[in-house]
């Protein structure tokens, strides 16, 4: 299980990055995250949905109810332009962290110590 704070921090970029590929709904997002993380990131509904609402009211994503063939409803989310900008900002930040960690965990990190 990932650290709680890490999960919290990564939620928004993950959602934005998934939605950047196309519209999706809450449960599908959860499943996608599970698949991408080999089942390591297993989000609860109680975590995801409030965040989706928050992101919607912040204007990063927007939603619409879609009626399925079987008569059930689903709420689909799409990313907004503001959301794309936000994704770009967070992408750069995560990349920076990622690069740094990759180098550190590589065979010969250039470090000044002592």
């Amino acid at each position: 299980m990932a650290y709680k704070t890490l999960v919290a921090a990564s939620t928004k970029p993950l959602i934005l990055s998934i939605l950047a590929h196309g519209k999706s709904y809450g449960y599908q997002i959860i499943k996608n995250v599970e698949n991408l993380s080999d089942g390591e990131l297993s989000w609860t509904d109680a975590m995801l949905y409030p965040v989706l609402h928050r992101m919607e009211s912040d204007g990063l994503i927007q939603s619409e109810w879609v009626i399925q063939e079987n008569g059930r409803k689903r709420k689909y989310y799409t990313i907004t332009n503001k959301g794309r900008e936000e994704r770009e900002v967070t992408r750069v930040q995560w990349m920076n962290v990622n690069t740094a960690l990759n180098l550190l965990w590589g065979s010969n990190p250039q470090l000044e110590l002592g």
């Binding site: 089942g39 390591e40 297993s42």
Partner: peptide, 12 residues
């Protein structure tokens, strides 16, 4: 085994 991990594995 977590359901999520298992499903991911099956799917893959």
């Amino acid at each position: 085994v977590s359901v999520g991990a298992m499903r991911t594995a099956l799917k893959r």
